[in-house]
């Protein structure tokens, strides 16, 4: 089973109130979303970071293996100034976004045609699709490499494959949850088949599509780091891998901190969009009584995301020249494998 299987299993009736719309919030298993505004929640992370730094200052951690927080951050800062760390981060994000786009383009129409138009075909294909969705993506990676070669295409298609299944099954679940009374009411008010589809079915399924996309993005980001470690010329995973290969321990930690922060930020960004976009939903993010982002905030966030993606795409195309840029100090340039 893949991590996505959590979101594919329809939440049963007597669990749903507990998991607060389990399907929508299911990220990496079964997390719950509760209103969290209390500042005490920052206490433990802050204490952990402080403990890390203190132990390292006291000399209780071997700096050869575990450098202090300050040293790790300094390494990250150094990489930002001299080795395009931010560009690498944006390249990683752009890969995830490309994969997500491909997965959405394939998964949503497939789910709509199988779930909405030809349910008979779906009943026939379902076992096969479930098995395909459970194929281990790391096993697929060598297969894709054989087909596409060791380039961007292999990486992005593995990521797209990974993101495809939560999106596909999420869309199906959304269609399954569609209240038939709504469709009948719309038809009764004179809506044609096309407008029932456009104005009832698609909006009704969109929160589930988004939930699937969220799971897909998380999984893709996870696997991306691995894919970048095993053969890439740019990206955060590659930074970690090269730092590891050269025993530059603070750099591993620095890049690692950036990966963790980026993963958290990505998740928060998606929750933010979820809260703003699907205000009508009965449960899930945005139904916890906290204020929802308005249209202006949403538009700004989307614009920022687009800018990051554009830079990432350019960085991806120029990965080679990025490495050999004269402004990159030789000590960082040796990273080329």
């Amino acid at each position: 089973m893949t991590p996505a299987a959590a979101s594919r299993t329809p939440p049963s009736k007597n669990i749903a109130p507990v998991a607060l719309g389990g399907k929508a919030t299911a990220q990496r298993g079964m997390r719950m979303t509760l209103p969290r505004r209390s500042p005490t929640r920052f206490l433990v992370p802050a204490a952990m970071l402080a403990l890390w730094e203190t132990l390292s200052r006291l000399g209780l951690l071997d700096p050869q293996f575990v450098p202090g927080l300050a040293d790790s951050l300094a390494a990250a800062l150094d990489m930002t100034r001299r080795a395009f760390l931010l560009t690498h981060a944006m390249v990683s994000l752009a890969r995830v976004a490309l994969a997500l786009g491909l997965a959405l383009l394939a998964g949503v129409p497939l789910a709509f045609s199988l779930g909405h138009a030809w349910p008979g075909a779906f009943r026939f294909l379902e076992p096969l699709l479930r098995v395909l969705g459970q194929i281990n993506p790391y096993c697929l990676f060598p297969v894709f490499v054989v087909v596409f070669g060791l380039g961007e295409a292999a990486k992005i298609s593995v990521l797209a494959w990974v993101a495809l299944w939560p999106i596909f099954f999420g869309t199906l679940a959304g269609l399954g949850d569609l209240d038939p009374v709504l469709a009948r009411a719309a038809r009764g008010m004179g809506a044609g088949k096309a407008s029932v589809f456009l104005k009832v079915a698609i909006p009704a399924a969109s929160p589930s599509i988004f939930a699937g996309a969220r799971t897909g993005v998380q999984m893709a980001f996870f696997i991306l780091i691995a894919a970048e470690m095993t053969g890439a010329t740019a990206g955060l995973g590659w930074l970690v891998h090269n730092a590891g290969a050269m025993f530059q321990v603070p750099r591993i930690y620095g890049a690692g901190l950036v990966i963790v922060a980026l993963g958290l930020g990505l998740n928060r960004f998606l929750v933010f969009l979820d809260r703003g976009l699907f205000f009508w939903r009965a449960s899930g993010p945005g139904q916890d009584g906290l204020p929802r982002p308005g249209p202006l905030a949403l538009a700004l966030a989307l614009a920022a995301a687009l800018i990051v993606l554009a830079i990432g795409l350019i960085g991806m195309a120029r990965a080679e020249s990025l490495l050999n840029d004269p402004s990159v100090v030789p000590e960082y340039r040796v990273w080329t494998e």
């Binding site: 990496r28 997390r31 509760l34 969290r36 209390s38 005490t40 929640r41 920052f42 206490l43 433990v44 992370p45 952990m48 996870f222 780091i225 691995a226 470690m229 995973g237 970690v240 591993i252 690692g256 990966i259 963790v260 993963g263 958290l264 998740n267």
Partner: peptide
Amino acid sequence: ELLDLPMEILSQLNPFL
């Protein structure tokens, strides 16, 4: 509430890292 955020952070710590 105290441990929810740290767990979220730790669960983001990629196993490959």
